[in-house]
């Protein structure tokens, strides 16, 4: 069974909760799909048994010796990535989308495409099972495809090792990498927080999970920072027929655990908050089984 933890809004505690889930049950596969800002390897320090290069895209490069500054490419580029600066053609690397059209139409064959291949997928072992994660090199694109690669590898590792449960830590937002994270998983858990921004982002995230027909439940993290807002969120979810499977109060123990490179379950197994998270996890497993 695959459980994806996402949040819409960043910083709601998604990774801390994923880390807790990943240490509640022995022998799981943990997939960190927040490839833009992967963090769980910091806590779990996995081995790197396998490292795979990921080609995230291409960038156009002009050979100045061949270029006659005719400007044909400027007219064709739809990403405003080619400028004519005082008669000299320049490519803006930040805006280039890598479509290759300029390279194809250049009459002087002065433009070539270079691969962007700094991003990586890693697979290895950590103290509670197997771990797969991706690291998108800064500024590179196509994080959705890297997420696909991480998820495929996680499934393969699970199968090879006879492991049933895959916990996926997802990226924030609602774009392509999030869609890749939730496509076809058994359970989506959205971690939100009791703020107006949290509620707004939750609504947009639910639009996505509804569109992709995922079985979805909600956790309200740091719930005691604004109990009234937590109630508002719960009412909203009730109306939408989305189960709120738990409220977790703010606890500095979670931060202490992170500073000590442990999950809250490892750091304070007997604390109230750890018991709460365990109950939530059991609920997910139960409802997951009843529907699949």
């Amino acid at each position: 069974m695959e459980i994806a933890v996402i949040s819409g809004k960043g910083g709601t505690g998604k990774s801390s909760i994923s880390a807790a889930f990943a240490t509640l049950q022995h022998n799981i596969v943990l997939a960190d799909c927040d490839v833009d800002a992967a963090n769980l390897y910091i806590l779990f320090n996995p081995t790197h048994d396998e490292e795979k290069r990921f080609i995230s895209g291409y960038k156009a490069v002009i050979d100045k010796d061949k270029c006659t500054n005719c400007g044909v490419c400027v007219d064709y580029c739809r990403f405003d990535a080619i400028d004519n600066k005082d008669g000299e053609i320049e490519i803006n690397e930040t805006s280039c989308d890598g479509c290759k059209l300029c390279s194809r139409i250049c009459p002087e064959e002065a433009i070539s495409m270079v691969q962007e291949d700094e991003s990586r997928m890693y697979s290895g072992t950590f103290r509670n099972g197997k771990m797969v994660y991706g690291r998108l090199s800064p500024g590179e694109e196509n994080s959705g495809r890297l997420v696909d690669i991480v998820r495929n590898k996680a499934r393969k590792v699970a199968k090879e090792n006879g492991i049933e449960t895959i916990i996926i830590d997802g990226p924030p937002g609602i774009g392509c990498p999030v869609i890749s994270t939730i496509t076809g998983v058994d359970d989506v858990v959205i971690v939100t927080e009791p703020t107006l921004s949290g509620l707004h982002d939750l609504k947009r995230t639910l639009d996505v999970t509804t569109q992709f027909k995922n079985k979805t439940s909600v956790i309200i993290n740091k719930s005691d920072l604004n109990t009234e807002m937590a109630n508002t969120i719960e009412t909203y979810c009730d109306e939408k027929n989305i189960a709120v499977i738990g409220r977790i109060p703010f606890d500095t123990l979670v931060v202490d655990a992170m500073v000590n490179c442990q999950s809250i379950i490892e750091w304070a197994p007997d604390a109230e908050i750890s018991k709460l998270i365990k109950e939530i996890y059991v609920t997910i497993l139960k409802t997951g089984k009843s529907t699949s």
């Binding site: 960043g10 833009d36 800002a37 805006s95 694109e141």
Partner: peptide, 10 residues
């Protein structure tokens, strides 16, 4: 936007 990929750089 959060992150360090294209939206951030833009």
């Amino acid at each position: 936007p959060p992150g360090t990929s294209c939206p951030f750089i833009q």
